[in-house]
Design a protein around this nucleic acid. Structure first.
Lengths: 186, 186, 186, 186
DNA sequence: AATGAATGAGAGTTCATTCAT
DNA sequence: CATGAATGAACTCTCATTCAT
């Protein structure tokens, strides 16, 4: 069993989980090194600083959500109802059953006020998420109303993930997802 | 060498603002000392540790919301619509126009996973907030539905405050408050 | 039950026990205040500094041993054997059954190298102790030999108290006391 | 900014001397850093805490005494008298002419009551020391008496080192060593 | 490319002492 | 006389970062 060389992408993936669990400031480079099986010093071959690593995790997370989650809202040859269902299934798998909630949401509240450089990335996440929802709701509603409803559901979901994180129970975001779907029903 | 006199309640009040702006881990005892006009070591006359100080800020914040905000939902001799209006006005004054959002919500996402001792306090905040809303909605809806709607609006408001913090604009929570009111309209 | 005013002598007595248990540097003024039922600030009405308090405990301890222990070696109208016996009984009561050993011996090893001002006091203790023993042994031995034997037994006793402190068992100093007595037997 | 290279064993050796001179609590990490030519923070690469460093100094001291001093009592092909002589010579070189006395004895009195984790190590030192002496005395005395005599001399020596530390004169332990030898003479 | 050793700054905390009340 | 509040220095320890090897 040869030790597989750690790739940069893998390091970013692992770091994301540690940041998601502990937050940015409560996570030390030692924590990250331990989680990635690297020595502390080796980190600086991949990333010039802790903040740069954070930024990469955000970029990778955003790219992942765009490619693997939000994209599901735009599948051709599938009715909106099913597109929303598959998107929410994927979303749920990523966020509902992990006790640490929404990575991007966590960082928004922890860092938006003190680390403005990440705000555009964070905002993009919410905007893309709302756009995907809005596009689906437009099958049933006027664009303006669909948009408002989409943003409303994004906010509700972030609040639901907050309660889920606090209570340890997935029912909050689950019920929120059910309401998201219901808005497409008759 | 001037010996500044402060009260414990005042220290807690000032510390709350610093924690709200920067988060718990990003705030040093030096930051707190500077904000309170104390020297670092003097803090330990009031609180045995940074964590104990945090807990006191949470307790004081919860007590304040209970006494000064949520209580407005229970005013006798006032129609529900007006009670909700005054409660939301007070709520807005405290949270909408401060760029740092909801203190309790911020700490939920930063600390729920790593500082479980504060979870009951945080939960109480959300529960009281939902109870106040539910009690108002029961003027119009069945208890079960009123309750669900109340929790839904609490979540939406936390999400709205998150977007407000990220965007720097109060319109997100403002519109959420408008929807809260609309649920009581005809 | 009126609260008896703490007297300076009482404070010194209590402080001695805390210093004996924890050593000088490991004992904080808070520890002392707690043990004496005083507030920290009040200490400075009795003693100008922690070090001055230490010195007073040493002086009081030395005075006590002189008046209440070593004096027993000089009782008129009692044979040497009995004088030694009563002195050792008193000595044992003070030191053997307290797990913290010999106060003066403890401070000698902790502070002789860094707080030379207390060295004369400490030395006086050992010198008086040896003189008392020597005077008794002179009933049986030549002065020079009695003196040497006395110092020898003082050293052995300090070593025995060290082992007693480490093991928690009084048998080490007890057997040493038995040997002290044996030197006066036939 | 020079990066001094040191070995862990060297750090332990130097720290032992500082602890021996000043005691554990009176020695700061700054003192240790200065003595070792390291910066304060660098210590924590070698030892997780000041207490862990202390434990290592004790372990190394015990190992040294076993290998380099007490072992001399068991040399084959040498009469007991000479074995004792060489052991005492080595012992004297280490302890008599250093004004800070016996490292293990110092720590016994300073820390036995407050840091119980080191008690087994300390006790092992005294036990090995007594065992080495006892083994030599058994050339002349019955095992039980040899054993008692050995412990007696260990205690006397600790007391002698205490007086040596207090007086600054090596004659106390020197004469004690002479008595140790005398017990093997005709 | 990888790392172990080192670092300076700063973290939270403790301390002996001061002093206005 | 007593004390609660305050202090500045020092404490142990952690951190993100550097760099010779």
């Amino acid at each position: 069993m040869p030790k597989v060389k750690t790739t940069k992408a893998e390091v970013v993936r692992l770091a994301t989980e540690v940041f998601r669990a502990q937050g940015f400031h409560a996570t030390s480079m030692d924590d990250l090194a331990a989680a990635c099986g690297l020595r502390k010093g080796s980190f600086y071959h991949y990333f010039p600083s802790k903040e740069a690593l954070l930024t990469e995790t955000l970029e990778q997370a955003l790219a992942y959500f765009r490619a693997k989650v939000f994209a599901l809202a735009y599948q051709p040859d599938l009715p909106p109802r099913q597109r929303l269902q598959t998107m929410l299934d994927k979303y749920a798998k990523l966020l509902f059953y992990n006790p640490n909630g929404c990575y991007l949401g966590n960082l928004t509240l922890e860092l938006a006020a003190t680390l403005p450089s990440i705000k555009p990335l964070l905002w993009q996440f919410f905007a893309d998420w709302a756009a995907a929802l809005s596009q689906l709701y437009q099958a049933k509603y006027q664009p303006a109303f669909a948009d408002q409803l989409a943003w409303q559901m994004v906010m509700e979901m972030e609040g639901a993930l907050m309660l889920g994180k606090l209570s340890g129970q997935p029912s909050w975001p689950e019920q929120c997802a059910a309401r998201m779907l219901a808005h497409l029903e008759a």
